[in-house]
Nucleic acid binder design. Structure first.
Length: 437
DNA sequence: GCCC
DNA sequence: CAGTACG
DNA sequence: GGGCCGCTACTG
């Protein structure tokens, strides 16, 4: 390798392949390398060590798809080296060096690996001190990070039918190039900007890398469109934006040109056009139009009420209602909708994590009093380690597994609860099941 | 909206 | 049954 | 052009 090894660890998140597995017809797509993809011009060598075969294959696939050339050997042409973690990288380099014995031994000066200069920041992000910081590497600046969930709330549909490889894990790669056209990214800070997910089940490392919201402007606007389209009942379109956000959030660079986002999944022509408009104008006329449209605004507002969906929101609008106070007069609302209206402001309040924890404890105790041995698990965002929760999810089960459901036949409760000594109402879901999952 |  | 919420 | 999460669960 004659190129200088000015290596700067740079996180890279695989493009999601979420929907491909849902295709009815399993057509084999042959992604041509995108000459404008984010890895265009890179000649990559992948260090297989420590990478599962399946994952290794996906790496290669994505790299090629996004414009890179993947070399089977660490040849002179190689401009970038990807490794699972620093150990693998070092071992590989040691091996290569031995192979070069016959030739001259080049100075190692230029090979200094600058591993994840921001690594130290990752240590202060664990929100759950109770979790062990499991590391697969002795290197404190461990390069491997895994994360299984989206930053946003659950979306099993985005990630179901898994083949065991969720295709969403993140990998940091080391660049050995000085010629990278994307080198500027290296200087960016990868400071975390949002709470971590702690996946206790998988003993996930708390060193998880969370991408910065470099494209916040775009994702914010798209997020508004998600809500608007959902309120309007255009679920499909809404979901498209939702998926696009997930993809954009994981980009390790700030989008400055639509050319940088070619070939990304879930981002087609319209999305690209919108992104282009946002980065040039700082706004999206489509959204502005929505936000000034009284009908859209009203229906969106009504849709925020728990229990009111697109259909009801539209009916209420057509009845002439324009405000929440108008709704309060309407007696056609279902009980749930009335409650949703009554506690409209309450529900919007997020619940501090420690309060959820206390509620959990209370429920554990009550549950034990009612039925000895009952297992009560507080799931949802709490279980995923969020600092605050939008609602509380409780799963009730029993090791006996003797029955599913309750005496009344109802095994699910969507309702409200309140923190002891307060009036503020929170949303809580209870589910009784005999399956511990 | 995206993707066959 | 339609509508809605949930994960 | 047509599918797009669920042999979902629940409410009214």
């Amino acid at each position: 390798m004659h190129c200088t090894l000015r290596t700067s660890a740079r996180p890279f998140i695989e493009a999601t392949n979420e929907e491909s597995n849902r295709r009815k017809m399993a057509s084999k797509k042959k992604p041509k390398g995108d000459p404008h993809g984010m890895f265009a011009g890179m000649v990559v060598f992948l260090v297989p060590r420590g990478v599962q075969a399946r994952r290794f294959h996906i790496w290669k696939e994505r790299l090629v798809q996004m414009g890179a050339v993947v070399e089977e050997r660490l040849s002179k042409r190689v401009t970038h080296v990807f490794a699972m973690h620093s150990d693998a990288l070092h071992q590989q380099l040691d091996t290569e060096q031995d192979c070069l014995k016959s030739g001259e031994l080049l100075s190692e000066d230029g090979y200094a690996l600058k591993l994840d200069p921001q690594g130290e920041h990752t240590h202060e992000k664990s929100l759950d001190p109770g979790l062990t910081n499991q590391s697969t590497s002795s290197d404190p600046q461990q390069l491997i990070n895994k994360k299984r969930k989206l930053s946003t709330e659950d979306t099993k549909n985005v990630n179901h039918e898994g083949d065991g490889d969720d295709g969403r894990e993140k990998v940091i790669f080391s660049s050995t190039s000085t010629a990278s056209s994307h080198g500027k990214v290296d200087s960016l800070s990868y400071r975390n900007t949002r709470p971590q997910h702690i996946d206790a089940e998988n003993e996930m490392s708390s060193l998880s890398y969370c991408p910065p919201d470099l494209n916040k402007k775009i994702t914010e606007i798209f997020g508004k469109l998600v809500n608007i389209y959902r309120a309007l009942g255009e679920d499909r379109r809404s979901f498209s934006y939702y998926k696009a956000i997930a993809v954009i959030e994981k980009l390790p660079f700030k989008i400055e040109s639509a050319d940088q986002i070619n070939n990304l999944p879930s981002i087609g022509k319209s999305m690209k056009d919108h992104i282009q408009e946002i980065i040039t104008n700082g706004k999206l006329s489509k959204l502005e139009h929505f936000e000034t449209d009284e009908k859209v605004r009203t229906i969106s507002l009504f849709g925020e009420v728990w229990g009111i969906g697109p259909s009801t929101a539209l009916k209420l609008y057509e009845k002439g209602h324009r405000s929440l106070d108008d709704l309060r007069i309407d007696d056609s609302l279902t009980n749930a909708q009335k409650l949703g209206l009554k506690y409209f402001d309450d529900i919007r309040q997020r619940i501090p994590r420690h309060e959820v924890q206390e509620m959990d404890c209370i429920l554990q105790k009550v549950g034990e009093d009612v039925l000895s041995g009952v297992v009560i698990i507080c799931g949802g965002s709490y279980r995923r380690g969020k600092a605050s929760c939008g609602d509380i999810d409780i799963i009730i089960t029993h090791p006996d597994g003797k029955r599913q459901g309750t005496d009344s036949g109802v095994d699910t409760y969507f309702g409200f609860c309140t923190y002891p000594g307060r009036e503020l109402r929170h949303r809580i879901d209870l589910k009784v099941t005999n399956v511990t999952s």
